[in-house]
Simulated assay, not measured.
Amino acid sequence: MQETDKDIFEKDAKDYLPVFNRYKIVLDHGEGAYLWDNNGKKYLDFLGGIAVNVLGHDYEPLVTAISEQAKKLIHCSNLYYTQPQADAAAKLVELSGLDKAFFGNSGAEANEGAIKIARKYAHQFDPEKSQIITAWDSFHGRTIATLTATGQPKYHEGFGPLPDGFEYVHYNDIEELESMMSEKTAAVMLETIQGEGGVYTPEDNYLKKVRALCDKYHALLIFDEIQAGIGRSGKFFAYEKYGV
């Protein structure tokens, strides 16, 4: 028996930790770019699960692949090898032009891993080479490090003390970035196209100039493409559009 919206709201209020403000809509199912709520009302899905559902809802090849894999293995830790993981890594390397792929459980975990890689890499040259520069109005995740990397003070409130070593510049302001960088800079971390900040694209040659500054100071350049990547910009990764 299908429960009413009121029943679901009451059950949720009783048992679910309220960490998000949510719309009073109970979604039931989707097809392609459309969603239906618990009462049969149809919606055009502009949110896409915060840009997660790139292929839409009930996409048959995806549903079939998930179903077939679920019949074989639901989960396998990184202590073992599987062919799908090896195949997926090879495909990502091919499509990205990068050297290696790492699989995380969330965008925040991926960014956390990138921050750790940058710090680990910089530490071999100078233990104090730890500065991570990100942009105001950015969003990089909700772990304690990626929360600090997020250039929005409203997300920092109540979680201090935050990790040291993070500083912020205005997106597209290359002069401000240059004034902040030094031999102590481990990495610059930017969304290739800012998402939550208001969908801001990089100005002409901005990312090329950021790349040049990172090279000058032997710092890594981290592109957070959790929202801009995987085909959403017209290229597999948005950075490909900007010649970096």
Rank of each mutant, 00 (worst) to 15 (best):
Q194R: 10
M189C: 15
V188L: 15
L213K: 13
E203N: 14
V199R: 00
T201Q: 10
T185V: 11
D224S: 08
E196V: 07
K216M: 04
E203W: 00
R232A: 08
E196S: 03
V199K: 03
A228V: 03
D224M: 06
E203I: 07
Y200N: 05
V210M: 11
E225H: 12
K184A: 15
F223G: 09
L190A: 10
L190K: 07
L190W: 07
M189D: 10
I222G: 13
K209A: 13
R211Q: 12
F223T: 04
G198E: 00
E196A: 02
A219W: 02
L213A: 12
Y200M: 11
R211F: 07
I193G: 03
K216D: 04
A212M: 09
V210P: 06
D204Y: 09
I230L: 14
A187I: 13
G198M: 02
G198Q: 04
Y206M: 04
Y217V: 03
E191L: 09
H218V: 09
K208W: 00
A219Y: 02
A219S: 14
I230F: 08
Y206Q: 03
G231L: 01
G231A: 08
S182V: 08
G195L: 01
A228P: 01
K209T: 05
K184E: 11
N205S: 14
F223A: 05
Q227A: 10
A212D: 15
T201E: 13
I193A: 06
V210R: 01
V199A: 10
V210G: 02
A212S: 14
E225S: 08
I193R: 13
G195S: 14
T192M: 06
I222D: 04
E203G: 15
Y217A: 05
